[in-house]
């Protein structure tokens, strides 16, 4: 039994981690080494003496070439990364603020048919982006928001509201009501009690919610590629657009870019590790 357990663990961990390890190795290759038909996975400092060995010459050129503009794209990786950062941060701030406010209302105040409203909020998350994108596109054309940072940030804000509201409601419900009742006795108004007593208690929850909103905006692709195909293109839309590149895929640069793109997510996953279960189940399952 012990052996089986370790085998399952090693197999599972390798399956999860090897593709990412390979990404790191591929980012150090020249294009020739990346598309060489025989296996090469040992980075060496100089050119390998035997061309059929498992060694390849490690180089940083892929990272240097990230500023190149590839065929079929309009800008370099860095400018797309900047779009991702701007849109991700803007939408995270907005959805956390609006979602927290909404969750405060549902958690602490009397609202008629609160449960129905909450389920309505959750149900918006199930909407396939492609099913609502045409009306949004037409709306954005009229408002001149197509291909702008603001337009996509606004859309992601709404897209993440369900997540932010549900996650925050879970966190807020755990804060004992005695705290604010004490504050009310001390002469605080209801709003003051929420702002000065309840919100500071929810710091961790707010941080966790922000991480999940940021990741979900960072990774989003459907809206990004349909609405922002011309301007403010985020990294996922840029990368997927390279598919079927006529010049041949610039694999080392893709690996290097993808690695830089996913590295912050790996860090955030580690930081939020105690709350991952909540995050992926909209706060409905608590660890």
């Amino acid at each position: 039994m012990r052996l089986v357990r370790w085998l399952v663990l090693v197999a599972g961990l390798s399956f999860a981690a090897l593709p990412l390890l390979w990404m790191g190795l591929s980012s150090l290759k020249s294009r020739e080494d990346a598309i060489r038909p025989h296996l090469n996975f040992v980075p060496a400092l100089g050119a390998p003496a035997d061309p059929h060995s498992f060694e390849f010459e490690a180089t940083g050129t892929a990272y240097a070439h990230l500023s190149e503009v590839h065929a079929g794209a309009q800008a370099s990786f860095w400018s797309h990364l900047w779009s991702s950062v701007v849109i991700g941060v803007l939408s995270t701030l907005a959805s956390v603020a609006l979602g927290t406010a909404c969750a405060l209302g549902f958690s602490r105040l009397e609202i008629r048919a609160a449960k129905d409203w909450l389920f309505f909020v959750l149900s918006t998350r199930f909407m396939p982006p492609l099913a609502v994108v045409v009306p949004v596109l037409l709306m954005y054309r009229t408002l001149d928001l197509q291909g702008t940072h603001l337009g996509l940030a606004l859309l992601y804000t709404v897209f993440n509201l369900s997540l932010a509201t549900w996650l925050m409601k879970g966190f807020l419900d755990e804060i004992p009501r005695a705290y604010e009742e004490a504050a009310l006795v001390d002469g605080y108004t209801r709003a003051q009690a929420l702002w000065r007593v309840v919100l500071p208690e929810a710091r961790t929850g707010i941080a966790v919610t922000a991480v999940f909103c940021l990741i979900s905006a960072w990774n989003e692709y459907g809206f990004a590629m349909t609405l922002n195909s011309s301007g403010a293109v985020t990294v996922p839309a840029y990368f997927a657009g390279l598919q079927g590149n006529i010049e041949g895929m610039p694999w080392p640069q893709i690996a290097a870019g993808a690695l830089l793109f996913v590295a912050p997510i790996v860090v955030f996953t580690w930081l939020a590790r105690a709350h991952l279960l909540r995050g992926i189940t909209f706060g409905t399952v608590k660890q």
Binding site: A16, V235, A240, A258, T269
Partner: peptide, 14 residues
């Protein structure tokens, strides 16, 4: 757990 946090579009291409 890392794979589930990554971008499907980027990882699909890779």
């Amino acid at each position: 757990l890392v794979p589930m946090m990554l971008s499907p579009a980027v990882m699909g291409l890779y």
